[in-house]
């Protein structure tokens, strides 16, 4: 594959609150190749949502702010862009779907009004044309009664339908990147599968790159080509889906995979990683995962390991995989 379409370099998004400065995203490096589905996995509060909102520069500000780092979209840094330049990218080149389809659509406008608005904004087409594009999109996302749904209000639709509408809205302008922030978390399991299938189909048919934010490893295994595991505002492991599942390097990833219940084994209790995600602060030292790590060493408390490539296309941020000699170099 060629150059990545989206590349996040050392991104730091901090929140400035009464309790002090909170580094929600603390030096994240990610890249997304054209046509690829990248999974970003982690527990609640690990910074995956904030990372995705940062890409569209939609982090609520105040209190949030991108402190440093760069986000290259097609090679161009969008962090310093002005607001009006950013608006041309949002919903047009990079679009986003959210976790809560129930509340993410405006209750007072019809489905049609909400989608045509985006189409007209970015494509500058007539009302009539926008409507036919909208109908087209609604059919593409598998809505059977598109002609009547287009004039209905969100409250008249089920959760799954609303998420389809959200997807139709986000792909209406044929974006090159789709950011899906836990798109199936709020849905029933059967509907989840349908929505994931839809996203995969759009990825395959349109070559649209997808950044899939999720906490569900099942979703990752099903959907993604590559995975980045995040913990406490940092990427701790990154590699192909195959590598991550077959040979997880970071103890946190190992813990995550272990805590997924399996069909073919009987366990008394489900495994869970002991402890909680640490409270983020500016003065954290050492590895963020140290307190919960079964392999914790003195070194882990003193210094933060780097994200290092261990085998081709598979990197991890852990002292276990760095020999002291290397460290000395």
């Amino acid at each position: 594959m060629g150059k990545p379409i989206l590349e996040i370099k050392d991104l730091r998004t901090h929140f400035f609150t009464d309790r002090g400065e909170i580094p929600a995203v603390d030096g994240v490096d990610l890249y997304l190749n054209p046509g690829e589905v990248l999974g970003v996995v982690g527990e609640s509060g690990c910074g995956k949502s904030v990372t995705s909102l940062s890409v569209l520069r939609l982090v609520p500000s105040p209190p949030g702010k991108i402190v440093s780092g760069s986000i290259l979209f097609k090679g161009k840094d969008i962090v310093p862009l002005r607001e009006w330049e950013m608006r041309k990218i949002r919903g047009n080149s990079i679009s986003m779907i959210f976790q809560e389809p129930m509340t993410s659509l405006n209750p007072l406008f019809t489905v049609g009004q909400q989608i045509t608005e985006t189409v007209r904004l970015h494509r500058g087409v007539s009302r009539k044309e926008a409507r036919s594009i909208t109908l087209d999109m609604l059919k593409k996302v598998g809505i059977a009664r598109a002609e009547s749904i287009i004039d209905e209000y969100p409250h008249q639709l089920s959760g799954g339908m609303r998420q389809r509408v959200m997807i139709a809205m986000s792909i209406a302008c044929s974006p090159e990147v789709l950011i899906a922030d836990e798109p199936t978390t709020a849905l029933d399991v059967t509907i989840q599968a349908q929505i994931l299938e839809l996203i995969r189909r759009l990825n395959e048919e349109r070559g649209m790159a997808v950044m899939m934010i999720t906490h569900d490893l099942g979703v990752v295994a099903e959907m993604c080509h590559r995975v980045a595991v995040m913990y406490a505002g940092k990427v701790v492991e990154e590699g192909s889906v195959h590598d991550i599942f077959k040979n997880p390097l970071h103890p946190y990833t190992q813990g995550l995979i272990q805590s997924v219940p399996r069909m073919n084994e009987t366990r008394e209790r489900l495994y869970s990683i002991p402890g909680n995600v640490p409270i983020l602060s500016k003065n954290m030292q050492g590895c963020r995962f140290a307190a919960r790590c079964p392999h914790m060493m003195q070194r882990c408390l003193e210094a933060l390991p780097n994200l290092k490539e261990q085998e081709a296309g598979h990197s991890s941020r852990c002292w276990l995989h760095e020999t002291p000699q290397e460290d000395a170099v």
Partner: peptide, 23 residues
């Protein structure tokens, strides 16, 4: 959330405020 959606669509702040939020 729907105000965030409106912003994510690329609408200007004016439209977000006077159309989506105000209603």
């Amino acid at each position: 959330d729907y105000v965030r959606t409106a912003k994510a669509k690329g609408l200007s702040q004016f439209f977000v405020v006077y159309k989506h939020a105000l209603k």
